[in-house]
Design a protein around this nucleic acid. Structure first.
Lengths: 250, 250
DNA sequence: ATGAAAATGATTGATTTTGATTGATTTTAG
DNA sequence: CTAAAATCAATCAAAATCAATCATTTTCAT
């Protein structure tokens, strides 16, 4: 078990339940108490968590930053598979839109080494895109602090200057009646516009999103191809009538 | 087994799982531990991965890389003074434009804790601005790879939606005949537009820029207040006729 | 084919990580 | 408040991993 794996597991658990007991981590991770202690000390030094007697708790300020290397190990595996398949849809010469969000971010590493142009509303994507040497356009607008996504009138206006071959969208909810939904109405507006400017649209959503409904709708299931991991047959048939689904095995 | 084949296998695995153990690679690839070690060392040197005890993990860089260490301590001190004075010009309720560049970036730390709105074309400013809890708008457009500044038609179009109380600009050259100049014509366009959209403009330039002329002109000396450090009297009088100068002692 | 250069695999001792143990400190229960 | 229980930091030896070295094999230009 690599140190970074343990870190990921610990941080995931802290993130999920706000506090963790040391004994709990010993059981779940299967290493000695000493090791867990050392890990917690180190994570505290790095300002990811705050140690308390008997365990550790979440340290507010830092965890939402995109620089944090923590991610659910397993669910990140699934996201990666989804992202990898999505990237395989990109062809030479394409101009694509990549939505803000962690799932779509995973795509960047898998984008083919072809001449493509990327437009995005996600600030957190920029660094990786440039590092890969990809021609990148960012839409303007107000920067939503928590997620670093571009929103507002400026975002909508500046996106209208572009047209996309393919748009790759993240979502918080996929529902066969309610369609695609996300909590923030302003983000929904941006997503909706991106879809309308694109020839084809793909929505990336792992199974935890399927069946969920968030506040603001930004699209119908028939507007996009859904890329997801495992899906129960019952659920699958519900959607099959309305849309195309790509199920990516893990 | 070719070296590049192994590299490909290793990178693929790291990409998919974030971390790999050396033993795992030995098993999968079927070469000795020594070879894997050598491969990992080389891949780390090439900045593809980061080695950790027992294996390797994905390398995640930082956008705000201080890769360019300040030329000299002195000039950084001077830039700070200039930036500090510039920041003192900002008042409650102002909507200001902050140009991309290292000198203007220094301003952010000195901005007053007042209700202000910042619009910028500099990606590298964003993180600090958000951290300070400042309402931030980014103009859209093409991201110029080296400097992370927004340029192009998208940048110009999306800036036109804003009006500024004050604009704070960086420059590469200040000359009493040639005005303000910068090497990249596309950046010059953006700067020129920003100035035209602002009630007042300040140009921040340390003494190394004074007297210099770069390729593209973006403004006349009379269009802006020049904030600089020490200036010889002779030079000063040349400009005095045309513009306002603030000299900031170090 | 031949020799030099490069790559590989095994071995070494050094370094880092780990788990168990210790006694000190904090929390909990009565 | 006191004593038992839980948790803690510090320490040390064992295990895992490391970098360095060297003999062997492979590659490649001649």
């Amino acid at each position: 078990m690599l140190t970074d794996e343990r870190f990921a597991l610990i941080l995931e658990r802290v993130k999920q339940q706000d506090v963790v007991k040391i004994q709990e981590l010993v059981d779940v991770i299967g290493v000695s108490e000493s090791t867990i202690r050392r890990d917690l000390t180190e994570l505290e030094n790095k300002k990811y968590i705050k140690r308390v007697h008997g365990g550790a708790k979440l340290l507010k300020g830092k965890l939402q930053e995109p620089s944090v290397p923590e991610k659910s190990f397993k669910s990140s595996q699934e996201k990666k598979k989804i992202a990898q398949f999505a990237s395989s849809q990109v062809e030479e010469g394409d101009c694509i839109f990549i939505d803000a969000g962690t799932t779509t971010q995973q795509m960047i590493g898998f984008l083919p080494d072809k001449e493509i142009v990327v437009v995005t509303n996600g600030l957190m994507h920029i660094e990786q895109l440039l590092q890969r040497g990809i021609k990148t356009y960012l839409i303007g607008g107000y920067i939503k602090p928590r997620t670093n996504a571009m929103i507002g009138r400026g975002a909508l206006d500046s996106m209208k200057a572009y047209r996309f071959d393919k748009a790759f969208m993240g979502t918080n909810g996929v529902h066969f009646e309610s369609g695609y939904t996300t909590p923030d109405p302003e983000e929904a507006q941006v997503k909706e516009l991106a879809i309308s400017l694109s020839r084809e649209t793909y929505v990336l959503a792992d199974d935890s999103k399927v069946g969920e409904i968030a506040f603001s709708k930004f699209g119908n299931t028939e507007d996009a191809v859904l890329i997801t991991n495992e899906l129960e047959e019952v659920v699958k048939s519900q959607y099959k009538k309305q849309t195309t689904i790509k199920v990516v095995g893990v």
